[in-house]
């Protein structure tokens, strides 16, 4: 089981809880959600507690992430979009810290489960749809009708727009999920090669060098992917929120 690359995604119950026939157990996934939230929250809270006019290094990390997300949101959705800043920042930090925590050996990667990423993307799309209708009423549907399209093409364009809108939560969630899943499986497989080749004797140890180097390179790549996927998730969130704020094309 230890060499099974899928094993790392196994969910095990730590505190079994069952309510109304549904299994709400506190699992290793829940534990790492708590760890993610605690790490991110504690980092942001503690590094800014001195409120230094001249920031310390860690305080400037918190400030940089704040300004990074703020600029991202302002560029994509304008100043009106800043009312969604807490949401986007929470999503970015949650995904980023969950991804990075997953890079520790034996740690569980919260974002490698489609239900988590899907829930997060549905949170985004739900916000977009509810805010869009609440703010613009039926004009929000203008999102699906680009201006300047010949009347004959309108039904086709609307169909395409609707499909693309509906596929957004899927693409948003699958992108993050698949990246984390595939990255961790690849890492595990190559690391497994190191062990199995290494156990074959002298020649095997020489041969194990290759997957070892590969594992090292992949680890670096996975850190990049961890950040990049959090960034992509946040950027797309900003762009979708922009649709809710300014539905006309």
């Amino acid at each position: 089981m230890a060499n099974d690359p899928i094993h790392q995604f196994q969910i095990s119950k730590l505190i079994p809880i069952e309510i109304g026939g549904l299994d709400f157990s506190f699992t290793n996934s829940s534990l790492f959600m708590v760890a993610t939230v605690a790490t991110a929250g504690a980092f942001l809270y503690l590094t800014t507690s001195s409120r230094g006019l001249v920031p310390s290094r860690l305080q400037s990390v918190s400030e940089m992430s704040y300004e990074f997300v703020a600029n991202m949101l302002r560029d994509a959705a304008g100043t009106h979009g800043m009312k969604f800043f807490p949401l986007v920042f929470s999503l970015f930090m949650f995904v980023l810290v969950a991804n990075l925590l997953g890079m520790f050996p034996y740690f569980f990667t919260v974002t490698s489960h489609i239900i988590v990423t899907f829930a997060l993307s549905m949170l985004v799309m739900g916000t977009v749809v509810i805010y869009g209708f609440w703010k613009h009423g039926l004009k929000f549907l203008g999102l699906f009708v680009p201006e300047g399209v010949p009347a004959i093409l309108v039904p086709l364009v609307v169909l395409i727009e609707v499909i693309s809108f509906l596929s957004r939560p899927i693409s948003l969630s699958v992108r993050l999920f698949a990246n984390m899943l595939a990255g961790h499986i690849t890492l595990k497989v190559f690391a497994g090669f190191v062990v199995s080749l290494g156990s074959l004797g002298a020649l095997g140890i020489g041969g194990a060098l290759l997957p070892l180097l590969m594992t090292i390179a992949l680890t670096g790549l996975e850190f990049l992917v961890s950040f990049l996927q959090a960034y992509v998730f946040a950027v797309l969130t900003c762009m979708y929120l922009n649709d809710a704020l300014h539905p006309s094309h």
């Binding site: 995604f9 709400f24 996934s29 959600m33 949401l87 930090m93």
Partner: peptide
Amino acid sequence: FPPFDSSTYPSQLLWLAITFGLFY
């Protein structure tokens, strides 16, 4: 395949809602 094991979904959704909600 664990990510497609829907028996874990309620628990994950609940704890995600709790943790992410508090985080937010």
